[in-house]
Design a protein around this nucleic acid. Structure first.
Lengths: 208, 208, 208, 208
DNA sequence: AATGAATGAGATTTCATTCAT
DNA sequence: TATGAATGAAATCTCATTCAT
């Protein structure tokens, strides 16, 4: 049926699923779930539309895979932090600065975070996964460290969980800011400087 | 076609846009921009689909109107705060607690904020409007108050804008939390308590 | 977005669902379920593709409606036959000749029967509906008449249900013949003559 | 690419087409032409999808081969019957009972018959082949036997072809019944009993 | 001003077919 | 011969938008 032309396809090496996930992350982050076109994902991954379906059942399935994929390194980070037994202040300092410099700054992360927020209504499982795997463990870890520090008398009284939200808040704000307001001209936030100044302020404010 | 009878009761036309905006806010907040069905908006507003087009050109136009509509009362609050001339600490305390108790807690607001975040890529104008009208004035006001307090020696040195982000961060986190994680089972945040504890902490940490 | 041209659509009177069903019957009968194109159905019904979805949820739903629609008149016929209390031979004669002349001859019926056969694997509900509504009542009625005639000594012994199949078989064969072999050149069957000769033969063969 | 080792066992290539045809018959009978997946055929035949194309040009080609393949043994049966020179009644009795017990009862046959009916519109060649090779010879043979019996005064007057349809009808009905209504719960027909009772009835009814 | 039936462009998804290996 | 990853045309279904009434 087709007039013969140059070869229609060529098997290429490389990790197809990973290439597709990378392309999908880009497109989803740029356009959101609904506006993302699978055709665009395919084009950027250098495959045909049909090929996507060799690896992912549906668009939603691909979306979920993108989000899950973005979590995995974070899980490791959180575990590593949890296992590093140190005294309160250095632990929080190192943790938050690392978060600011490595995680919040990473466009891949802030992009996915924004997606999770944006699509939480239509894909609550994603919010659930993210919450169980990243958010609650992270907040839980900080709360525990704070509670222990309170027992040791290093931190004044107060709800440890609220202290944790107080520390994390500006990091969340930074991601939202970068994804939402910077593209329309807002002055970028220097996240590391923010983290450091915030730590100086809050840690002093938490002293007994 | 209908034999003349008594005129059917008819809502004042002037109310229509407001009713439509209210219905649209609901539906957009529940479903996001793309999943929101104009048919659903029309049904909840008690009008026909066609009627929407008498007041709004397109779906995007309606969306913009919803977002703008949600801003206006906030603008008034901000202006009021700005005009209330008080010393630094009380001003910040009153402002943040008011924000926590009146604004962050309002589902309408957190819903719209989430929408702005979610659709910022496809509707950057919304992010722009929000930034110019709400965010920048708010952050600007706080920064100025802080800078003035620094001049008076009430606040230690440090970037006033970063202090402002440090104060606001947990409020943003709270809105994201409510919209994204509470629906999937996360323990709710008591925003007012958070604001108060955070103020105690940060204001102490900002002292010279 | 569209350059203005002649009016895109015009509401027309008439019973839309019925028009669509008629068009769909044609197309389904011509092409089978899978090869039938909704675009073709829409074109023949004089509506747009989208309009089909105002009346029928899915293609399968439309298909079911076509089949159900074809049954209803038959149900009436069967009921009428059942209620006509007559002695055995005339009843069967009248019934079968009526069937031959009115039902088997009707392209709409034979077309739908073929569809039910063809799609019974993919749409078993249709076979079920047809079986419960048309086939089993019909066979049941004949069996009962035969059993009663046996009691009265008008019919020799033998399984009444098998007698019924013996009478009906050539009618089924005729429908299959018309739909399957006539289009490829088979000599048409004169169904009424077949029914009459078959009745003469079988009724005589059923005498005690 | 593989290091030389002992040769993997390998089916004789000569068997491949037969294995594929067997698998294809199963799948086509189960799902119909369109819903049949070549991947499924390949899996059941124990070959790759690509291998199918070494033996059959297209899906339709494979389908035709399946149908033709199912005919061949029948042709032999029919020829054998035609050549067995016997008097009318025994010939018909033997023939029909054999048909009932060997052919109609064979799921492979009823499956293909159903396929031919179902796809006759999209693949008329199949109906044509079937008609020319199976149906018309069979009906022709019976008609001739009947006509000869009429000449000998063994059968009363009447259209021999219609007598043939009268005899064959319940066999067709049985195949349709099995394929269409039994899967949705209809009580199975005992085809051999049906054939015998029908023969008793019709043959008596055909006596002068 | 209001209606809502109708439109049709466009998106996801399927799967027979191809061809580099 | 044989494989199976990859292709891409084509089909169903959605829904913002239109406009005769």
């Amino acid at each position: 049926m087709l007039p013969a032309g140059e070869p229609k396809f060529r098997r290429r090496p490389g990790d197809r699923p990973a290439e597709i996930l990378a392309a999908a992350l880009e497109v989803f982050a740029e356009r959101g779930f609904h506006s993302a076109r699978l055709e665009e994902v395919a084009k950027r991954a250098g495959v045909s539309k049909g090929a996507l379906y060799l690896y992912f059942e549906t668009k939603a399935d691909l979306f979920r895979a993108v989000v899950r994929d973005a979590i995995s390194p974070n899980i490791e980070r959180i575990k590593a932090m949890a296992e590093a037994q140190v005294s309160f202040e250095p632990a929080v300092r190192i943790g938050l600065v690392m978060l600011a410099s490595r995680v919040v700054t990473d466009r891949r992360v802030s992009g996915v975070v924004k997606l999770v927020i944006a699509e939480s209504r239509t894909h609550p499982e994603l919010a659930a996964i993210w919450h169980e795997t990243v958010v609650e463990p992270g907040i839980g870890l900080m709360s525990r460290l704070i509670a222990e520090a309170q027992v040791r008398g290093e931190v004044r009284e107060g709800d440890p969980r609220l202290f944790a939200f107080g520390l994390m808040g500006p990091m969340v704000l930074s991601m939202v800011w970068r994804e939402t307001f910077e593209p329309v001209g807002a002055q970028p936030i220097d996240v590391v400087k923010l983290a450091e100044q915030h730590l100086d302020t809050v840690l002093q404010g938490m002293r007994p």
